[in-house]
Write a protein that binds this DNA or RNA. Structure first.
Lengths: 158, 158
DNA sequence: GTAATTCCTCAACCTAACTTGAGGTCAAGG
DNA sequence: CCTTGACCTCAAGTTAGGTTGAGGAATTAC
């Protein structure tokens, strides 16, 4: 008999990595990778195979959305860390995180819009060659990037 | 006498890599890297050292701005390829490129804004766990990313 | 009971965008 | 002339976010 049969036909609380991959649209390799990054922490069965909770579907959906919004895995991990440990997150828990992300998203949109407006100005003024141009040498919240791979829209959050 | 003295004190048309680095704020190593990527093609003096034109300052400023807007080096290279060969680009040439970039920027801003609005909806509906949610499984111009490093805001241009 | 799936770990590889370092050359000042 | 600083090339390293493959164990299906 299958390992989870004791849970009953409709209360199947755990999933294999393959099931979760199918439900989230993520690759199996990505799910394992996310575990090494601390985004999910599945249990293991006696054979050592990963067993995910249903609530992990939502967790990973959140990861996907956040990535589309331009957040790095590290930022996402920190956000998820604010979820309660021990119990399955409630709707309210998720709302709190989402609102937090919306704030950052607003910030990004504003920054891009400012950038666009500067660009409009520069088309006319021809200042692109001047080091003082707000676009090239940005003040106003726009920071210089460090070395290494760059995150979209420049600087990382916080 | 210095190698460029024949050009006169104020008509110093060429620069060393160090000068250009200082004027653009880019690292010397980055300028060399950009050359391998085809973003600039400096001449060489008899000793083999790079000699940049004044118009390269603007060219590299453009590279910096475009990167802040989230464009990849490859995209930027293609955009720069539309500049006239042989002659120094005019103001009009730059305006044309800038306008083109503004269009792409508008697109990105719109996409982020749509995403934000979806997120607002999801906070209320709690649909984050459903595969059909517009955020998790986006239609409406939002595409799935491929493997490898991701560009900011998801998919690359074009 | 056994064959076919699925899963496991670990190491290596991939792209983007650069930086760092080694070992050697060029140019400008005194 | 000769020293010092700026330059040169080329190879290897870095971070992010994963994928791919080898070699082996656990499940599931018949």
């Amino acid at each position: 008999m299958p390992e989870s049969a004791h849970a009953g036909p409709f209360a199947n609380q755990v999933m294999s990595i393959g099931d979760l991959a199918e439900r989230t649209g993520l690759a199996v390799s990505a799910l394992r990778f996310y575990e090494t990054k601390g985004l999910v922490t599945p249990a293991r069965n006696r054979g050592g195979q990963r067993r995910y909770l249903r609530s992990d579907i939502r967790r990973l959906s959140f990861v996907q959305v956040a990535q589309q919004l331009g957040f790095s895995i590290d930022e996402i991990r920190k956000a998820l860390a604010t979820l309660p440990e021990g119990r399955t997150p409630t709707q309210k828990d998720w709302e709190k995180i989402s609102r937090n992300f919306r704030m950052h998203l607003d910030e990004r949109i504003n920054r891009m819009t400012r950038l666009r407006d500067y660009l409009d100005g520069c088309i006319g003024c021809g200042c692109l060659s001047m080091k003082k141009c707000a676009l090239v040498n940005p003040k106003d919240g726009l920071k210089k990037f460090g070395p290494g791979a760059r995150s979209v829209m420049g600087d990382k959050l916080r």
